[in-house]
Simulated assay, not measured.
Amino acid sequence: MFDSPADAWYVWIGLSLLGAALLGIVTQLPDAPPPDAAGPANAVDAVAGGRHAGTGTYPISADAVWIEPHRIGVRTDDETAFETLAYGPVTPVREGTLLWEVLQGARPDHVFESTEGFARAIGRAAERERAWRSAPGALDVRTVSWEDADATLVGA
């Protein structure tokens, strides 16, 4: 009495609409996991929060990376994710600068003539305009202390 007959036209139209709606939902699902900003941020925090000078490298599986003094961002084709750093500020470092050499392992007293020059370079890097950088596959982190100048250098 309350059943609808299976050969009724409105049952088939309803099932067709339901199938089309489900197909639309399935095709809108992302085909890849969202980018991981927490991993690079945790790697930076692990080095920056250490009691002694340290270094670290974190593999990045994203197309681009965004480095600010207080947060890290990663971007893929479809999505972007940011994570706030617990230990900051950090100094974003670009490839081809003197700070990049220090980030890669050079001693600051071999690269810079004085601690004042080192401190000025840190200040300029912190004030530089931010931009997305192509992710080369890894994020490098190094804490450096030279007399009164302390910094956590981060580059990709």
Rank of each mutant, 00 (worst) to 15 (best):
G73S: 07
E101C: 00
G49W: 13
L139C: 03
H70Y: 13
E79H: 14
S16T: 12
P89G: 01
I122K: 03
A151L: 08
R71E: 14
T97P: 00
T84H: 14
T76A: 07
Y58P: 02
N42M: 13
P35F: 07
I122D: 12
G14S: 15
N42I: 05
R71I: 02
E113L: 05
R128M: 07
G137Q: 00
D36C: 06
I67W: 06
R130I: 05
A81P: 05
F118S: 05
A64T: 03
A149I: 08
S114E: 11
A119V: 08
L18I: 14
A20N: 01
W12Y: 10
A86H: 13
L23V: 14
P35N: 10
A8Q: 14
G123A: 15
G19S: 15
T80E: 13
T27C: 07
S134F: 08
T115H: 08
A64V: 06
T27M: 12
I60W: 06
R128E: 15
G24P: 01
G54M: 07
A138S: 04
V141H: 02
R133M: 08
D140K: 06
V154R: 11
T80Q: 15
G56L: 00
L17N: 12
S145D: 07
V141P: 01
T84R: 15
E113F: 08
A38T: 14
S145P: 00
S61N: 10
D63F: 01
F82E: 15
F118D: 06
Y87L: 00
R130D: 05
F82H: 12
A121F: 07
L17Y: 03
I60E: 02
V141C: 03
V93S: 00
R142Q: 00
V11D: 06
A81M: 15
T84S: 15
V74I: 13
P136Q: 04
R51H: 12
H52S: 10
A43P: 06
L153A: 09
R107K: 10
R94K: 04
T27P: 03
E113C: 00
G96C: 04
A156I: 10
A126H: 07
